[in-house]
Computed example of a mutant assay.
Amino acid sequence: MDWIPVFLVTFKGLVLATGMFFAIKWHYDQGKKGKQQADERRTVLRASGKVAAVFMLSLLGLGLFTVALIRMLNLDMG
């Protein structure tokens, strides 16, 4: 019996099995990475929403303070 085909088929099987293992591992890691990036994106969006809310509240407060000051000093608004 010739051992070359047996060796080459065995080697080919090992190479394909190793390739499939690393392909599955890579896809699994990419899925975890995507979930982690989604969590980071959610955190950044939440923080930027808080900053925008604080900015809008401070802008509203400044506007109300300005109107109160104008009325207190009897200035013409129109």
Rank of each mutant, 00 (worst) to 15 (best):
L59N: 07
H27R: 06
W3A: 14
V9C: 12
M56R: 15
L64H: 02
Q30D: 05
I70K: 03
G61K: 01
L75C: 01
A47P: 00
S58T: 11
K32I: 03
H27Y: 08
L16Q: 01
Q36M: 10
I24D: 01
M20C: 11
N74T: 09
V54Y: 03
F21V: 04
S58V: 11
G19A: 11
I24G: 00
G61I: 04
F55G: 06
F21G: 01
M77N: 04
R42M: 14
F22H: 02
F21E: 04
F21C: 05
K35I: 02
Q37S: 06
A38G: 09
W26G: 00
T10Y: 08
K25W: 08
F55A: 09
S48L: 15
A38P: 02
R42K: 11
G19L: 08
F11G: 05
A17E: 06
A17H: 10
K25M: 01
Y28A: 04
G49P: 00
A53M: 07
V15G: 00
G34I: 00
Q30H: 03
A47F: 03
D29C: 02
A23K: 06
K12P: 01
G19W: 03
G13Q: 10
F11E: 10
V9Q: 12
L73N: 05
P5T: 05
I70S: 02
A52I: 15
T66F: 12
F22S: 08
I4W: 12
K25G: 00
L69C: 08
M1A: 15
V67N: 01
P5W: 09
K35E: 11
D39T: 02
R71C: 09
I24L: 09
V9K: 12
A47M: 08
G61N: 02
G13K: 10
K35H: 10
A47V: 05
F21T: 03
L8V: 13
N74H: 13
N74R: 15
L64A: 15
Q30R: 13
M72W: 14
H27G: 02
Q37A: 07
Q36C: 01
N74P: 00
G61E: 06
G49Q: 04
A52K: 14
V54P: 00
M77F: 10
V44D: 03
N74F: 15
D76R: 03
L14Y: 08
M20T: 03
D29F: 00
V9M: 09
I24F: 01
E40V: 07
D76L: 10
Q36S: 08
L64D: 04
T66K: 03
A68W: 11
W26L: 02
A68T: 05
V67S: 02
P5S: 08
M1T: 12
P5F: 14
Y28F: 07
L57Q: 09
I70A: 04
L45K: 09
K12L: 15
G13W: 13
I4S: 07
F21L: 13
F7L: 15
V67I: 15
Q30L: 04
K50G: 07
L60R: 06
P5A: 09
M20E: 06
G49F: 04
L73Y: 01
K33H: 02
G13E: 14
S58M: 13
N74E: 13
K33V: 06
F11K: 11
L57F: 13
T18M: 06
